[in-house]
Amino acid sequence: MIATAPPRVAPITVRGVGKVYPARRGSFVALHDVSFSVAPGEFCAIIGPSGCGKTTLLHILAGLFPASTGTVEIPPQEPGRLVTALIFQGISTLPWLTVLQNTEYGLRHMRVSPAERRTRAVEQLRRVGLDRFVDAFPHQLSEGMRQRVSIARALATDPDVLLMDEPFANLDEQNRLLLQDELLRLWQENRQTVLFVTHSLDEAIRLSDRVLVMTSAPGRIKAEVPVRLARPREFRSVRQDPEYGALSAKLWEALRDEVLRARQT
């Protein structure tokens, strides 16, 4: 591994986390006894069948709602920084705010002065190549550009941990590949801890150091597959590496039964 920046000391430890939703008849168990940890500066992917509680897990880590059982350990909050920054799938920006206002959105709740907010937001927009679009509204951008705005918004809060919820799911294949490159480049520069939820085997292998496979609902961690491909991960070298095929087969093996089971419910 080539580390271009020292990793942030930001491990995540999840112990026995469960989430139960009240349902019309009784209750629905979304997560059951999920335990794992992510090392500081590690890029960790989570794959699982749809409806397995991946999003629920990320929302718990982002503090949107508490877990029903178990504990989550994340580093303490420091002033001027966010511990976890969540990047959403689908609707990722507020349509009534400009690109700049969207990027500043986290900072405005962090007691950062307006001048510093602007500097930090513009800097991140430059990193994702959108500094020419500061005054545009989201509807004037493509889906991929909107997703880059939401990445800039996350990075502007200088987070210890990036939580990404299928951020590229709504993009076409070619744009997805470009954004993956961009994400890897950004990550290589800062080395945040990343937890990246995806349903794409290829995306998990291409991006991460380690893949966690979840079961169908109620979601648990079923398997853990390390990805030891060299970085930086250029598209061609990754696809031509014999290890890629082996990893792909291994992950699908772990996932296949779960996808079949999810289809039956």
Partner: peptide
Amino acid sequence: DRAYFNIARAYGAG
């Protein structure tokens, strides 16, 4: 859409 409220709350909106 609930997504807007999630964005706001994830980024510290009270």
